[in-house]
Design a protein around this nucleic acid. Structure first.
Lengths: 404, 404
DNA sequence: ATGATTTAATTTGAAACTCAAAAAAAATAT
DNA sequence: ATATTTTTTTTGAGTTTCAAATTAAATCAT
């Protein structure tokens, strides 16, 4: 019997109401009580009661009335917004050769950021922990805070991670496997750390701040070294039971296909990942060698048929993978998120067009495909978004306990 | 802002509690109040209050105490169960050449069943509607009821169906496309009809009565003419936004692959569906012709290398598709449901073993793979399960309104 | 047997919550 | 100034839930 959940939690039953209203305020950026009531279906009386609590707790604040523009009749509405100063949150993304960090206020406004190079891509747990602490310290310094000012830290790594248990089955940044990393990093830092797969964090960021603000069912695809996917269903990240679902990149697209870095054959990643493209280019193009993707792209632009063929196959494989996602999830939106769109060859209209052909055809509009360029800090901002969400949930819980 | 839902619906706030307790009772088949309290986290006091209501409404009943076995100290617990007599439900599955019908009580106990041959596989809406009514009448007759005794009818068809709107984008049983079938069939029958894709119905049946009773996150794969999938997440069928997700059979597993009946290339179904196997057998084996799968299997058993190769590829493709499902959903269970396991070549240990190799490897136990042989009435029973669930929900709502 | 003990179910009374309706607040329109 | 409009707050009633007390119904111990 996996069913659970009490009708009303001990002490205080308002927790869900508080969370819901806080979510609405965050999604709207700024919204009057009357509109919260309309948006949630909660009565204005209750909205007043709950927002009064949130105000008292310092989580939200009233927005100074804009006397400007067309003034309406009647008592003017007072907009509410999240109080940026309520909490300081950090987001970190551990990549192969760098730790990117961003510090935001509770609204999500960026206050400081930093990139700290890493000497080695793969390291033991204690080393990574201290590197993370160091990255945090440097970023805090830049912004004029200390680590102790932080209310929470979101942390993203590439790999197979069970976020619920803060457990890392495997990560490309760690030498060890099966590490209860949450405990390790908790000892190093004075505030709670929220750990997740990097693609899930981007999905979180899209939901809180990005293209996913207006919908509760969407898929985020990310490309970095590998191919990642974040699944949002009913406003929640879907992680699978062991926490290792959404492995889009290791979805098999070819029987006995190309060798993937994961050791298996036929993974999507083995056709569209950067290392896969370069490998193929260097095997097949004979004389001419490509060290970087840029050089491969150049060759393709010059009309090099080998390069063209390699990129073309990658595109088609990617389109096929996307089509499968639509065929399985039928989401409202697919968001192709990129850090600097170095992969715009995959995020092109051509690919999306091809995907449309491969999707099961019904007489209803296809899911919207959106390309979202986040800029360099995408991953770190995603981690911060996760941190903000988790800190919000914790604060709401504390409020409930305090009330009891 | 897709978020919504009032904190407490008008009139009566107990709806969710009633539904939850009813679900627990159904899942347990028979359970004492004290255990309901433990399972749900609701206090015993409230359980008493709610079950008293449900008893009064005739939805549940007390089980006569079993004086047998090891008697415990203390006041004996009185088990509660769903009252079978509360409602009569019918489930129908429209296949190519037959409509299978089953009538069950509110517990799900089969009371009557019937198979009605269809002259043609594909027909206009009004014809199908009257055939459905006829099938229902015949089955009712068999059981000694009339159609007016039914509280609800679950109806399963192969095709692309938006269950929420009771809208059929396309079905192999209908000549027309884009039909608001719910309205059409509602005019024909005196009770509500609940329409869905057949694979979703099987998933529903697994959840209410089958291997999915003990878990809330699982995937059901069905093979009939095509390949179907039902996704259960958090105890609910996941249908996608347009209602046409979970198209596992039309997932692409090969670039420029075999032609599928849907008109596209590379669909899984085009490698493992019965028509696909026969087509290939008859193209490639030259002289020897296979009219049925049985003949193809026989040939394989005799060592016919062509037949072996065809079946082998089907198995491997299917294993690859299953692996992709695990890689994406990481479910607790995968249930391979069959009507009579005519497809046991696909539901074999060999396939499951191969799947395991293709799944992303982590040091955690793989999802359980269960083969479930339902017998002939699988599809119809699935439809009945859906009917039962929907009628339950409606009755609970009516109770709430009555209380207000 | 009979009372003690144990466990389940029910009753009771208090606390919390939500909402409709009324009241208050704060603006514009006339 | 006064009326009107709209938002927000207050008030009071009605539900709902739960902890604690009570009742019910069995076994255990003597």
């Amino acid at each position: 019997m996996a069913r659970s959940g009490r009708l009303s939690p001990s002490g205080d039953q308002r927790e869900s109401g508080r969370q819901q209203i806080l979510d609405v305020i965050r999604a709207a950026e700024s919204i009057a009580r009357i509109d919260i009531a309309k948006a949630t279906g909660v009565s204005p009386a209750t909205v007043t009661a709950i927002t009064a609590e949130l105000l008292a707790a310092g989580l939200i604040e009233e927005v100074a009335p804009e006397s400007s523009s067309e003034a309406r009749r009647g008592r003017p509405r007072v907009a509410l917004k999240i109080r940026g100063g309520a909490h300081l949150i950090a987001g970190l993304k551990v990549s192969h050769h760098v730790i990117s960090t961003v510090i935001t206020d509770f609204v999500g406004e960026e206050l400081a950021s930093h990139e700290m190079p890493l000497a080695q891509g793969r390291m033991p747990v204690p080393v990574l922990c201290s590197q993370i602490r160091r990255a945090l310290e440097l970023t805090c310094q830049k912004g004029g805070f200390t680590i102790d000012d932080l209310s929470g830290v979101g942390l993203g790594l590439a790999g197979m991670i069970d976020a619920e248990r803060s457990f890392i089955y495997w990560s490309s940044s760690l030498e060890e496997r099966n590490v209860p990393f949450g405990e390790a990093i908790a000892r190093e830092l004075p505030c709670p750390v929220f750990l997740d797969n990097d693609a899930n964090l981007v999905a979180k960021a899209e939901h809180l701040f990005g293209e996913g603000r207006t919908c509760d069912n969407f898929i985020v695809i990310t490309i970095e070294h590998g191919v990642g996917m974040g699944i949002v269903i009913d406003g929640k990240i879907y992680r699978g039971t062991r926490g290792c679902g959404a492995e889009f990149g290791h979805t098999k697209v070819h029987l006995e296909g190309a060798l993937c870095q994961c050791g298996q054959r036929g993974c999507l990643e083995a056709y569209v990942g950067d290392y896969a493209l370069l490998r193929e280019a260097n095997i097949s193009s004979g004389s001419e060698r490509h060290r970087t993707l840029a050089s491969l792209f150049q060759a393709a632009e010059k009309g090099d048929s080998m390069a063209l063929s390699i990129l073309d196959r990658a595109r088609r494989m990617f389109a096929m993978g996307l089509a499968n996602v639509v065929n399985i999830f039928d989401p409202t939106k697919i968001i192709l998120a990129g850090a600097r769109l170095s992969f715009d060859h995959l995020y092109s209209g051509k690919v999306i067009g091809e995907m449309r052909q491969w999707v099961v055809q019904v007489d209803a509009p296809l899911p919207e495909v959106i390309v979202h360029d986040w800029g360099d800090l995408m991953w770190a901002k995603g981690a911060a978004a996760y941190g903000i969400e988790e800190v919000t949930a914790r604060t709401v819980k504390e409020l409930a306990n305090a009330a009891a």
